[in-house]
Design a protein around this nucleic acid. Structure first.
Lengths: 122, 122
DNA sequence: AGTACCTGCTAACGTTTCTTTGCATGTGCA
DNA sequence: TGCACATGCAAAGAAACGTTAGCAGGTACT
């Protein structure tokens, strides 16, 4: 297993939460393609596309495969990994348990107290 | 219908793609709760929690309900809206069609051409 | 040698998002 | 009147993200 925890879910959600990446994924769902061509199809720059593809790949939503065309050109093909993810409150509940989140919050409250010493209009 | 398009999906995904909001949602999945108390339970500041709750609500994942406790205090209760969202390449493909995305890209390429006039080491 | 494709990378900028801090408002109770 | 607890909002600094521009390398065909 790759990891399975809530962080995985988070990575997938973050990868999906972008118009560009949604479009990229949609385009690839219509068939595999290589970077330069895909960039032209979508009308975005190659550099930009690469970044997004990397994120999609990191999330495990697409796979890359370096191939060589008959005339020797190196082409990097991407294709979608068939996935099926169902989101429900319960799923979230389970996933949230194992989160290597930003803060490993300790059990103490803060919020600087509910406004003391300040009477309004006597 | 609220809107149904791909933008809706995007909003939901964006709302979910955050450790904090995932935790908030998880906490609410365990039962409804009001803001201040929830903040204490989660160990985060009230202001921060409010922001995240607003986003979750905007995405339609939770609902708020202002109530008054027996002793007259105004309590804003939040609870999860039972949802069931399934993500597959095909779903993405459909959703990507109707995207009021950041750019309404015109069909022209750019990428400043593939490096011309520049011979390295003669 | 020159052009046309392909790949990859990084520095830098602009923009958005996150988070804190602080103040304003209200009720109820000693 | 002072404290405890509830709500709300806005400014502002910090941190993360998205995007572009530019350079690097490669093969192949004229």
């Amino acid at each position: 297993m790759t990891e399975g925890g809530g962080d995985e879910l988070l990575r997938v959600l973050a990868a999906l939460a972008s118009p560009h990446r949604l479009r990229v994924l949609a385009a690839l769902a219509g068939g595999r393609n290589y970077v330069s061509r895909l960039a032209r199809d979508l009308g975005i720059s190659r550099a930009l596309l690469q970044v997004h593809l990397r994120k999609l790949e990191a999330a495990g939503l697409v796979t890359s495969d370096l191939e060589f065309s008959e005339d020797g050109k190196a082409l990097k093909f991407y294709e979608v990994v068939p996935f099926e993810l169902t989101l429900t409150p319960q799923v979230v509940r389970d996933a949230a348990g194992s989160l290597t989140g930003p803060d490993d919050h300790d059990p103490d409250i803060r919020d600087h107290g509910p406004d003391i010493g300040k009477d309004n209009l006597s």
